[in-house]
């Protein structure tokens, strides 16, 4: 309940302040909350932000580093300002000979800062377990440490090892890192105030990097079986010889697999966030229809937001699990001997 209340606090605040003007624009609010920002909003204030460093390289090739607070309220600093509308809306832009251009932007934005917080949490999780081992040797962990260890054991023993067999130890670090990172990012995304609230896994840049990692591991470590399956699969010859039909499909598949990984995680998490925000915004959309309607809608949307948040908590785990499971599967198809893989799966 507390989480739901907190969740409602921020968009509500945003909506109230924006609603004071004539143009209450739900779409803008939704994308503002799903997207990235140069500062980090604090609860109950729409103007104050936690400042984060802006790092840009202008078209002359020199770097500029300054606090995001200097760009608040459309201010300009060093010739850079945040564009409103246009192609680069919401981004830092510079001006060269009166023409707006986008500098190379490596700013520590809200999403980057949230990434680091998530990474820190994952490190804490990993090292809390190893520290327990150092202190207590073979004893099984208790409380939180036990749940972290259980997650590692669950992923390793029931997903990674049965699928990858003897190769499990080589690829487990990548897969476990991906799982915990995605899981923590998903959960932090559901917390609305400072350490969380960034829509990380609902941002295509984040999921793209993760999917590319799986893509590169799969294709760089692929063995001869993997390439044979692509360029000379076990199908009737007429399907592959004069016209490379199967080859075309398989090569296409090489790229669709990581693309599906990327889009699945992104769409699921963004969808979850969007639904919660839309449900909250319903209150303000219906505000003009009088107190009775607003009251009814409020009860309805609070209940549904709560339900969606609980569902998103489940989805957070499921999506992290699915990403890891599919990555494991793709890697196993590329690196495992087909016979050995089968034996391991049956064992």
């Amino acid at each position: 309940m507390a989480l739901a209340a907190l969740l409602l606090a921020m968009p509500a605040q945003a909506a109230v302040t924006e609603g004071e003007g004539e143009d209450f624009n739900p779409k803008e609010i939704i994308f503002h909350h799903l997207g990235d920002a140069y500062g980090w909003e604090v609860p109950f204030s729409h103007s104050q932000r936690i400042p984060l460093p802006v790092i840009v390289r202008d078209c002359q090739g020199s770097w500029h580093i300054f606090s995001s607070n200097r760009l608040n309220d459309g201010a300009s600093y060093d010739g850079f300002y945040i564009a409103h509308g246009g192609e680069y809306s919401g981004k830092v832009v510079g001006e060269q000979d009166g023409v707006q251009y986008r500098p190379l932007d490596l700013s520590i934005t809200k999403d980057v800062a949230a990434l680091w917080i998530a990474a820190l949490v994952v490190l804490l999780i990993g090292f809390s377990v190893t520290r327990w081992y150092k202190k207590h040797n073979m004893k099984a962990p208790r409380r939180w440490t036990a749940s972290f260890e259980f997650l590692v054991e669950f992923m390793y023993m029931s997903v990674i090892r049965p699928t990858l067999g003897s190769k499990a130890k080589t690829y487990a670090p990548y897969l476990l890192t991906a799982f915990f990172f995605i899981f923590v990012m998903n959960l932090l995304g559901l917390v609305v105030i400072f350490p969380g609230g960034a829509n990380l896994t609902g941002n295509v840049a984040v999921t793209l990097v993760l999917a590319l990692c799986t893509f590169f591991i799969t294709n760089l470590r692929g063995n001869k079986h993997y390439w044979k399956e692509i360029f000379w699969p076990d199908v009737p010859v007429w399907l592959k010889c004069p016209l490379p039909i199967m080859q075309a499909i398989e090569v296409f598949g090489v790229f669709t697999k990581p693309a599906a990984l990327c889009v699945r995680l992104f769409a699921n998490m963004m969808g979850g966030h969007m639904i919660v925000i839309v449900l909250t915004l319903l209150i303000f959309i219906f505000a003009k229809f009088g107190p009775a309607v607003t009251g009814g809608i409020t009860v309805f949307s609070v209940l549904f937001s709560l339900f969606m948040l609980l569902l998103d908590t489940l989805v957070s785990f499921i999506q992290a699990f699915v990403f890891t499971m599919l990555s494991t599967l793709f890697i196993s198809m590329a690196v495992c001997d087909p016979h050995e893989g089968h034996d391991e799966a049956e064992a």
Partner: peptide
């Protein structure tokens, strides 16, 4: 920018955990 930082963060996280945490836990 986010792709760059995501890659850097993920790579560092992977290197640290792959060296010091996951093998120990497994």
């Amino acid at each position: 920018g986010l792709v760059f930082w995501m890659f850097v963060t993920f790579a560092l996280l992977f290197l640290i955990l792959a060296k010091f945490a996951w093998p120990v836990i497994i």
